[in-house]
Structure formats: C-alpha cells, structure tokens
C-alpha cells in the first residue's frame, strides 16, 4: 500500500492494493477526483476535467 498526498488539499491518501495506473480515485478529505499516474513511485494528477458541448 502506497501513501500519497492529494493534489488539491494535501491530505494523505493510501492507495489500496490492486489500484491501477490511470485509475480515478476520490480524495476522502476534499472529494476531488484524482488520477493515479504511477504506482512506483506513487503519483497523482488532477483527474481529467469534465466538459460539456453540443456536438453530435
């Protein structure tokens, strides 16, 4: 189990066993979505922004 800090609020987050690269996780403190960029070393980025548009 790796420990890593939230990019938004700096809370400690423990990555559960079986966590995968590019998995989206939620910070238990501030609720922001984060993407696991690497496991060794454990590294997070803000999860992809969610946009809307009208295209068919």
């Amino acid at each position: 189990m790796a420990s890593v800090s939230c990019n938004e609020c700096a809370a400690d987050i423990i990555l559960a066993d079986g966590t995968e690269v590019n998995e989206i996780i939620v910070c238990p403190e501030c609720g922001v979505d984060l993407e696991v960029i690497s496991l060794n070393p454990a590294k997070l980025e803000m999860a992809p922004m969610e946009e809307e548009d009208w295209g068919e």
Binding site: V21, N22, E50, E52, D53
Partner: peptide, 17 residues
C-alpha cells in the same frame, strides 16, 4: 488516459448534449 498522456496530452472528459 494512458494513451493520451503518453502522447503528451492532458486528457479531458466530455458529456454531449
């Protein structure tokens, strides 16, 4: 997400109307 980041992009999600 892996493929986009590997090409140097910052991936985004979109929801369409």
């Amino acid at each position: 997400l892996n493929g986009i980041r590997h090409e140097g992009g910052t991936p985004r999600f979109v929801y369409k109307t």
